[in-house]
Design a protein around this nucleic acid. Structure first.
Lengths: 136, 136
DNA sequence: TTGGATGCAAAAGATTTGCACTCCC
DNA sequence: GGGAGTGCAAATCTTTTGCATCCAA
């Protein structure tokens, strides 16, 4: 939580609540999901604040914005490199460990260029049906 | 273009126009971009038709829906496996060849499961600043 | 002929914006 | 005290939906 202070961000209750909720959940929630959960504890909190906070935290590199759910942005408190799996049925996002038998060399070198483009970020998105939904 | 017929889809002028435009452009346009371009040639075409057509073509496997632009869905007429690069400055999407030094074994096996999840689709998304925007 | 496709407008869902007020540093 | 952060509502942008009409097969 002190990482926020290190980044020069003001430690407001709202920001800490968003950051904490993101860390406590493994669901990679969207802004709306975060808002729904927090408004019980912080009845005056507004959606705008949630959106503001999420982009501030993402810019500071404390969280990661995922482009895996086709309908909305999802957020991950873990910025270490790993893959994600999106279930087309339940729409949950799962973390996938960066197994060596299933990784890319490129990711080891953040400064690498590809076909002349400066790569700053890599997201590996798997989609399908998750283990829970397959059973149904 | 005959692929549409093979998939049992009606060959309407609107569908053919969307499919053709997608093939002629390398920009991986969004629905809105496609609509803007086509409404000159087909003044009565509606956005709904563009959206309908895109999801129909995607379901039939003739095009691919990309989750790389955080703000909107983008579409790719090439369904062969390859990576994509998204420029945060100009917001263009570039194709990246699936170089062996930069690929994943997993993609060779469409039926593979990962951590119990059934994988149907893989998208590798690179983000950063494209070669053209770096020069500016 | 006829069921699927289209066009239109309204609605829904996600995100942003403007601005006055608040409160962290 | 000052400026960043917040709350609220309205606006914007993307996508979906309902329904009457149309047309490819």
């Amino acid at each position: 939580m002190t990482q926020m202070k290190e980044e020069g961000l003001k430690m407001t209750p709202q920001r800490m609540a968003v950051f904490k909720l993101l860390r406590d959940k493994k669901t990679h929630p969207s802004a709306e999901m975060i808002y729904s959960e927090l408004k019980h504890e912080y009845p005056t909190m507004s959606v705008a604040t949630v959106y503001n906070t999420l982009s501030t935290l993402a810019e500071a590199g404390l969280i990661q914005e995922l482009s895996i759910d086709p309908n909305k942005k999802r957020f991950d408190p873990c910025t270490a490199y790993h893959h994600h799996f999106f279930c087309k049925v339940c729409r949950n996002v799962f973390d996938i460990a960066d197994d060596p038998s299933f990784s890319m060399d490129i990711v080891k070198d953040e400064e690498k260029k590809i076909e002349g483009h400066q790569v700053e970020e890599i997201q590996v998105n798997l989609k399908g049906v998750c283990r829970d939904c397959r059973k149904v």
